[in-house]
């Protein structure tokens, strides 16, 4: 098992502030690109483990609906996973809004979900990494429909000892679109995030 990376109050403060900026940007991008005007919640940041992550998701995501869960990996000096979760009902609303059809077909819905995920991940992660003076690469997103709120499979995550959970919620009331966003990063990447934050702090104290 890897050594735990300790985050100080200052590290968390920096991450929180950078994520606030990232979320503000994502809201503006969605308004601009998808003509949907809404709000996003102030991101919550927690350092946890797999058990904690599962529990957190159970507390955040309702168990009674089916969900479109879209995952997109990003890698480079900072790597992690961006997860966007919406209920199937909201996915249809999203398909309606983006494809402008009464009854969007499955392909339209998948495509709309991927498109929104993409805009969210690109704006949020890019803003964060820009502030940390690095560039990351985005990988192909994939969407699964999952019944209930067991969104993390044990086999996917068995090797992770420490996870940073960044979570927020978006709401676009006019379109009845709302969803949960999780950004997960783990183990060695937590150390690189800490180093990048240290550099950022050094720059400011210089």
């Amino acid at each position: 098992m890897l050594k735990r990376v300790e985050f100080s109050g200052d590290h968390l403060d920096v991450l929180r502030e950078l994520m606030n900026i990232a979320v503000g940007n994502a809201t503006a991008s969605i308004a601009d690109l998808l003509q949907a005007f809404g709000t996003m919640h102030i991101p919550k940041i927690a350092i946890s483990d797999i058990k904690g992550l599962k529990q957190y998701m159970h507390e955040t995501i309702p168990s009674e609906s089916s969900h479109y869960v879209t995952k997109q990996l990003f890698g480079g000096p900072l790597g992690g996973e961006f997860i966007f979760v919406i209920t199937d009902e909201v996915a249809i609303n999203l398909g309606n809004h983006l494809y402008d059809v009464e009854a969007p077909n499955d392909a339209d819905i998948y495509d709309a979900v991927i498109e929104l995920t993409n805009i969210l991940s690109a704006t949020m992660i890019s803003r964060l990494t820009e502030e940390l003076n690095i560039k990351v690469q985005f990988f192909l997103p994939s969407t699964q429909i999952i019944a209930g709120n067991d969104l993390i499979y044990l086999e996917e995550t068995a090797e992770y000892s420490q996870i940073i959970i960044i979570s927020t919620q978006m709401e676009f009331q006019n379109q009845n679109i709302n969803g949960h966003i999780f950004i997960l990063t783990k183990d060695a990447m937590i150390q690189s995030l800490k180093d990048l934050i240290d550099q950022k702090l050094e720059e400011l104290y210089a």
């Binding site: 991008s29 601009d32 690109l33 998808l34 983006l98 494809y99 077909n105 499955d106 392909a107 998948y110 495509d111 979900v113 991927i114 498109e115 993409n118 805009i119 690109a122 704006t123 890019s126 985005f138 192909l140 997103p141 969407t143």
Partner: peptide
């Protein structure tokens, strides 16, 4: 849709994707 995706890519300077299901 294509135009929206092109705009997104150029605006965000980041890749956008199509769902690749059969249909």
């Amino acid at each position: 849709t294509l135009q929206r995706k092109i705009r997104t890519t150029l605006r965000l300077n980041s890749p956008t994707f199509y769902d690749a299901s059969l249909t």
